[in-house]
Design a protein around this nucleic acid. Structure first.
Lengths: 362, 362
DNA sequence: TTGAAAGCGCTAACAT
DNA sequence: ATGTTAGCGCTTTCAA
């Protein structure tokens, strides 16, 4: 690896001149000098040592990205969009960390970023406690958080990019209601994530407006302590068993996300129930896998690519100019109809009638 | 961010003493001094600036990880294992790059790593051309390559960690044959990856040994130029249509990997064929998703976690001691039977008989 | 238009 | 047992 010294010697100039061409100050020199330096750079295959530059300027062209688990296809999808966007549009590289929803891991990641001189980070967390975020911000991290709305109380020098979760769940529920479903359930892993409770609110809002409040319920299960790649799906699978055993079994299930919906479908299969004949399932996320499974999953699609781009723009923007105020960016999802939702009463083919023959749950 | 200077001042010692405690040379000082320094470090929340250390020592505690696309669940899975292993066992962080199977992207990633001072990289590539690998190694990168056996010709200062692809495909094919399948196909995306051609060899070897050479064939399709998250699945889906239209339709399909198998199953569904009644499908990889889809996918399981650990051990090992010779590490896969493979002739329930009533393809 | 020089925070001889 | 010091490769005043 050649250094700026080598280049200077090769070109017969001083290192400051080389540094000037490196930093776009070509106007300060004769054209001929510029050419000589450029030739030398090419001849020696010189690439400036970024560690040295960073030590001097305090700038890195790296971003941190924290996800619960990159093995979860949803986070894989987001991560790909973020990395590509950061790289292609800003020349930034991405340092990845899996947190397994563990506070110590998150804190450790922030510490390491700071030590490495990385000052921008995009966080996809599901931890309720945001304390360590604030502390990281105080220590100089520029942070963008995905899918956790700004808490009113928190002082938060943090950007928030999220989807309208209330609306997403509402759309899903409405879709079920439109197909005649009257006994509804919202299936989720337990634990109070902000996005989760918003979705639950949206679910109940839709049910209430349709006069179905009394027959709508939340079913949930604890996640395992370790965050495996299949955790969400496993929870869904177990939940399907629970639902299958319910005396007044719901016919329309809104899953908190697509992975859990996949688990539900597998679980219903295990229980001898057929989707959508016996029970309808709808997801939230819009993973590419949702069109692949059998039956193809109806779901509420999140604009992941656009959200990723916004997150990258925000971190790098605030890295360049810390004076920019933080903001909240809310994205609207979109209903995608596929095959996992059928009429509540399969005997009547078209739009299902309210199921008057069956006894209401009320 | 406080510096080593601050700590020295706070503890009333020189910076070398602080540096000594930082670098595990506590034996060189009085216990009391050590304590004072440690107290100061804690009081000031001091973390050594890694950029400075790196500039001095040339060492980073970072690893590069190159994947075709982190949105592909298989790479997400591997990436998670690698990151976790590197972090928990060595305190290394991982810089992630998506290559979209693009040579320029790969080269650019190597350049950036070198410039950042990162000297270890794990590469999951599918490019046939390995030239730029060699060049990166010459420029100082310590490289471990996943799933591409060492080429006999290449000089290669590269470690190779791979699965026995020949055996994997052979096991899959044997499983199909054991269930009575006589017309076999190997479904793959076209393009000559090393792992791909080994699988094809394994497929034909199994077919030949069973006297089925003449009725075994490879079906393939070009991948799109852009590497989307769903590319593999899309190819599989298209392939299923091709297969469904074949005059002497194969009844047992070996998919080059699980993602392509998922696509096949979706494609057969589109074509009105039922798996495994009308056609049997078997994958290779053992993604956690394979137990989730309907029907659950029979597949040949790769020992991903163990392979990931080996890769991490190798890069970091050779980073610490460049004298260690490179090696090739071959892992054995394992058959996992699920529901996507049925008897060739569904009318005879048990082990299927050779389908004598139908005219052979020979 | 160019160059000299200070210094970013740290490590590791080498002194004391 | 502890301190002094010379850089690592770069950026950036300031001077020439």
């Amino acid at each position: 690896m050649s250094t700026i010294q080598d280049v200077a010697r090769h070109a017969g100039v001083s290192i400051s001149t080389v540094s000037n061409v490196l930093n776009g100050r070509a106007d300060r020199m004769r054209h001929e000098t510029l050419t000589r330096v450029q030739t030398a750079i090419r001849a020696l295959e010189f690439t400036p040592n970024r560690a040295a530059r960073q030590l001097k300027t305090g700038q890195t062209s790296m971003l941190g990205l924290l996800v619960p688990s990159i093995a979860n296809p949803m986070y894989g999808f987001i991560a790909r969009e973020i990395e590509t966007s950061a790289q292609e549009r800003y020349g930034y590289r991405v340092v990845l960390g899996n947190t397994y929803r563990n506070k110590e891991k998150e804190t450790g990641f922030f510490d390491d970023l700071l030590a490495q001189g990385v000052r921008g980070v995009i966080v996809i967390s599901s931890l309720v406690d945001e304390q360590h975020f604030e502390s990281a911000v105080e220590r100089g991290l520029v942070m963008v958080s995905y899918d956790r709305r700004a808490t009113p109380d928190a002082s938060s020098g943090i950007d928030h990019v999220s989807v309208d979760n209330f609306e997403a769940a509402r759309m899903a529920t409405l879709h079920l209601i439109g197909r005649g479903h009257r006994r509804l359930a919202f299936a989720t892993a337990s634990g109070l994530t902000m996005s989760r409770s918003e979705k639950i609110r949206g679910f109940f809002a839709a049910a209430h407006d349709a006069g179905l409040g009394a027959s709508a319920s939340v079913v949930d299960r604890r996640t395992l302590s370790e965050y495996g790649d299949s955790e969400m799906a496993d929870v869904g699978r177990a939940l399907a068993g629970d639902i299958a055993r319910m005396p007044q079994r719901p016919t329309g299930i809104v899953a908190v996300n697509d992975m859990l919906a996949f688990g539900l479908m597998a679980g219903f299969r295990d229980a001898g129930l057929e989707v959508p004949r016996d029970v309808s399932v709808i997801g939230i996320d819009g993973l590419f896998l949702s069109s692949l499974v059998t039956p193809a999953l109806s779901t509420v699609q999140l604009p992941v690519a656009r959200m990723a781009r916004t997150m990258v723009d925000r971190v790098i923007g605030r890295l360049d100019d810390p004076a920019i105020p933080t903001g909240e960016f809310l994205f609207q999802p979109e209903m995608v109809e596929r095959a996992s939702v059928g009429p509540a009463d399969p005997t009547s083919p078209g739009r299902a009638a309210p199921e008057s023959p069956k006894p209401g749950i009320t």
